[in-house]
Design a protein around this nucleic acid. Structure first.
Lengths: 148, 148
DNA sequence: ATAATTTATATCGTTCACGATGCAAATATA
DNA sequence: TATATTTGCATCGTGAACGATATAAATTAT
């Protein structure tokens, strides 16, 4: 009864904490541009492929649209993205980068490197990262199939 | 410019997603008892050591007290914990388990096992978990020292 | 073509997270 | 001892997350 409940034995707590701390690490790099970490994720998605409906963005980030919609509205208010109704399908809202949103990619060019290096350590190196990625991907895939 | 910004190359996104999905996995196991995942974490801390000041709980979970205080108040309203002023130090609020809070440990006895098994897969096994824990612990330690 | 169903997005309510700030008790300093 | 500083907790505001629900457009079935 004792051991299994120990906080130090919980994978979930490690993931939860690591996720929170890494988000905090992004904060000083993004806040100057009025960006939050989830908003930065949206930018990553749009930099890969501009002009996407809300649904595609949400699916790519594995978030619900009711999370993404208000987030996109805030980004629209900041002039980072634009939202327009779809032409073929009037239900869709197509989200695109504004000039400001595109320019942010240059401004944030050093962010991935900076955060990456702030995480590297003894056991997390360019050699071990693929293994870590693999395990996290497997965990995510496993939890996703359970969810369906 | 392209590659480093790819969502699939981001450690942060994997941690963020894995954390969210594992929290979602807890939800059906906890909601029947009116518990959220962060509240479950508080219970883990109190089951290890009853009667702790807010500060100790927050530090153990690496959260701020302004996150933990309202959370504890909700748990108090649910009758899961009690809060009383400290005797030596009148500033402290000592948080303790109620009978209901203690009984939840028996009721939730299967939760760690259930969640654990829902994560096990090809690359995440009893043999590989220690390595994963080590890497996550190192990442957390690295980010914590940067924060100070 | 009309009705039933599905799909895309949005709204609402609750609970975190957390930066900023306030306040009172405890401690350190003058 | 009086004053300054630190400490522990709380309040406030903002932005996620997400379950539940709503609404309108598109699709399918009758």
């Amino acid at each position: 009864m004792e051991e299994k409940f120990r906080l130090d034995n919980q994978l979930c707590f490690r993931l939860y904490t690591a996720s929170r701390l890494i988000t905090q690490a992004y904060h000083p790099l993004l806040s100057g541009y009025g960006l939050t970490y989830p908003q930065y994720l949206v930018l990553l998605v749009l930099w890969e492929k501009d002009e996407q409906p809300v649904n595609d963005i949400a699916r790519r980030l594995l978030l619900e649209t009711n999370t993404v919609t208000p987030l996109l509205k805030r980004m629209e208010a900041e002039g980072i993205v634009s939202r327009r109704q779809g032409r073929k399908d009037a239900r869709q809202m197509i989200v695109g980068l504004t000039k400001k949103g595109r320019q942010l990619q240059q401004a944030l060019a050093d962010v991935p490197e900076t955060v990456g290096s702030s995480v590297l350590c003894e056991s997390v190196t360019p050699e071990t990262v693929p293994g870590l990625f693999g395990m996290l991907d497997d965990i995510i895939a496993r939890l996703l199939e359970k969810r369906a």
